Simulated assay, not measured.
Amino acid sequence: MWSFEHPMFLTLAAVVAVIVLAYGGFYLFVNKFPGHRGAGQVVTVTRTIAVCIVFSVGLNQLWGARRDRDQRVWTARSQHLQRLQILLRTESESLTGMAQALREGRYFALVADDARKAVWRDDTLTTDIERHFPEYFRERERLIRTILEHDSKLGHIRQIVSATLRLTEATEFYRSDLVPALVKKCGGAAPGVSFNHIADNSAFRRMGGRSSGVRNPDQIMPMRDAFRTYEQYRCTSDLARMCQSLFDRAADLADAALVASEAARRYAEETVLHGSCTYAPAE
């Protein structure tokens, strides 16, 4: 109905009606009973009723507006929480992948110009993670900074190893495979999947078998030379110590990444959003 859609007009109409009726009654009362003191009481009661109507309806409208605002805030916060839950689950998976990469001895900066982007991809809602999950955000940022420092040290060691290699023109092609394999060798780890391809084909050739996955026979000799370089490489004590320390640190960082991954997954299951931001105003 129109009256329920426009409560203010209904209120004013009610007030006017009460005043008209009251003053009409007052007029008749004065004419019928001139000088009677009840006339003043009629005016007072009328004024009180009118004020009560105005205030009661006004307060009701204020409470209604408050309920509408609370509903809008609740809806906005619920929708924002859902978006953050999706982001936290994605971050949890990224942290798990980061832990795996650390255990494999991956050099992150090799695949990106920006060091941070090599380790972590920020989302448009990353700043909101800081506002709503500050403890997790601080731990994650500390972990990223530590991994960047670790990656920088790994890059330095790779440069040291690469500088000691004297490769022929044919084996130069395999430098990018040899360097990480030798870093792992000095650290007491297996050479890795990428270098296993070279080792397998070299072994097959030495045994007189067919090479695995190599169609061009001219590649076999350079592979054998590259594998021989790997086998004959001798790590200095200082280099071995640096590599071992680096891999021990990588294992610790991998464990920390898994802890952060579990924290992100746990926060993604929360049903109450704490804190406020642009998209989720305070309650």
Rank of each mutant, 00 (worst) to 15 (best):
R210L: 05
T168P: 01
P217C: 08
D177W: 02
M223D: 15
T164Q: 14
P222E: 14
S194K: 00
H197L: 04
S212L: 12
D238V: 13
S212Q: 14
S194T: 04
Y230W: 07
S237F: 13
Q232F: 11
S202F: 01
P222V: 04
R249N: 14
S237V: 15
R205Y: 02
G208Q: 02
V193D: 11
P191N: 01
A199T: 11
M221F: 14
D238W: 13
P191T: 01
N201K: 05
A203Q: 10
D218R: 13
F173Q: 12
G209V: 03
L246G: 07
S162D: 15
P217K: 08
S212R: 10
C243I: 09
P217L: 07
A163I: 10
A170Q: 13
C243H: 09
A240K: 02
M242S: 13
R206F: 01
G188S: 04
P191I: 04
L167I: 12
R249I: 06
Y233W: 08
A163V: 05
T236D: 11
M221D: 15
G192L: 04
D200F: 01
T168S: 10
T236V: 11
M223W: 12
S202A: 07
L239Q: 12
I220P: 15
L165G: 03
R249V: 07
Y174I: 06
L239T: 12
V193Q: 06
M242R: 13
R241N: 05
T229P: 06
L178A: 05
K184F: 07
F204I: 00
N216T: 04
V179D: 00
G192R: 00
V161W: 06
C186I: 04
T164Y: 11
P180Q: 01
S211T: 02
G209K: 06
F247T: 01
A170K: 09
Y233P: 07
R206I: 03
S162I: 14
C243W: 08
K185Y: 02
Y230K: 11
A199E: 11
R234I: 09
C243R: 08
R210T: 03
V193K: 07
D225E: 15
I198W: 03
A163C: 03
R215F: 14
I220W: 10
Q219N: 14
H197D: 10
Q244M: 14
Q219D: 15
D200N: 01
E172D: 09
S162H: 09
D218L: 09
S245M: 11
G187R: 00
A170E: 13
E169Q: 12
K184C: 05
F227G: 06
S202D: 07
M207L: 09
L165N: 07
K185G: 07
C186T: 00
R234W: 04
E231N: 11
M223P: 10
A203P: 01
Q219K: 11
Q159C: 11
L178C: 02
E169H: 12
C235L: 03
Q232K: 10
N216E: 12
A190Y: 06
E231C: 13
R234D: 01
D200S: 00
R175L: 05
T229L: 09
F173C: 03
F173R: 14
D218G: 09
C235Q: 02
D248P: 04
R166K: 15
H197I: 03
C243S: 13
